[in-house]
Design a protein around this nucleic acid. Structure first.
Lengths: 137, 137
DNA sequence: CGGCATCCCATTCGATACTG
DNA sequence: CAGTATCGAATGGGATGCCG
């Protein structure tokens, strides 16, 4: 619990610190959380965790993603230094994406969160069920 | 890296599993990630990590949150069993919110993520800067 | 193959006003 | 004090079509 309190304090502090100059939208925490909550960012990172992949390879493997969002999300990840883009001068040209060292380092803490999600999902569903039933009263 | 690969595999597996019955929107990972990415959910959790707080106390302490979003986010957190709501029958009535055991347990893995964000934000900003400059060419 | 540009709809969220 | 209700602007993201 001690570590939790520290994390909470840091989180709140950083957030409020950002609120003072929020015009710039420069909150370090929000910057990262926006990617986490993004519909596709983390899914792509997790697919790339297994190794480098080509653009259309990702497009085929990831269910339901549109070409637009795949392109856009890859650009954002590249811009943040989480993903590296390499063009091969073949014909037709091929482009390979891979995680950078920074991208790989994100998998560790993010994996903790996924583990928590899988452990807690039953409790969450149970809580929702009882909450919704209580609301019917 | 081994742990990272495992996490990635679990993540992708769970996601694809959900895609098959995606009509119901029942992906365990998305359920949690939506809360993480939510603009206010995690901020509220972090404020409550320090101890129970009343509604207006949260409203005053959290910068820029509207009454609507505070209410709505607290309801969602309560529904998922992360936050408990207790009404005191005083006059005027007061309502206290506190983290449940489940809510507290989220702070640990989420704290890891915040720590990563704070460690990596400089690298991210640097990557953005060089990316944007390269784009000007 | 690997994109980019455009249109358009759904959801999110802030502002404001009202209630027990 | 602790909400609820309604409106409207901004945003996210899918569908489609074109290009080097």
């Amino acid at each position: 619990m001690q570590g939790g309190q520290d994390a909470a304090a840091i989180f709140v502090e950083r957030w409020n610190e950002a609120a003072s100059f929020s015009q710039t939208g420069n909150c370090p925490v929000r910057n990262v959380l926006d990617k986490i909550g993004d519909k596709w960012s983390m899914l792509i990172v997790m697919y790339l965790a297994a190794g480098p992949k080509r653009f259309n390879q990702l497009h085929r493997e990831i269910p339901d993603i549109s070409q637009k969002m795949l392109t856009q999300t890859l650009r954002d990840l590249q811009r943040d230094g989480l993903v590296a883009r390499q063009v091969f001068d073949t014909k037709p040209p091929s482009v390979e994406y891979r995680l950078t060292a920074l991208g790989h380092s994100l998998i560790v803490p993010f994996g903790q969160l996924i583990a928590w999600a899988n452990e807690s999902i039953d409790s969450i569903h149970a809580a929702r069920k009882s909450f919704d039933q209580a609301a019917l009263a």
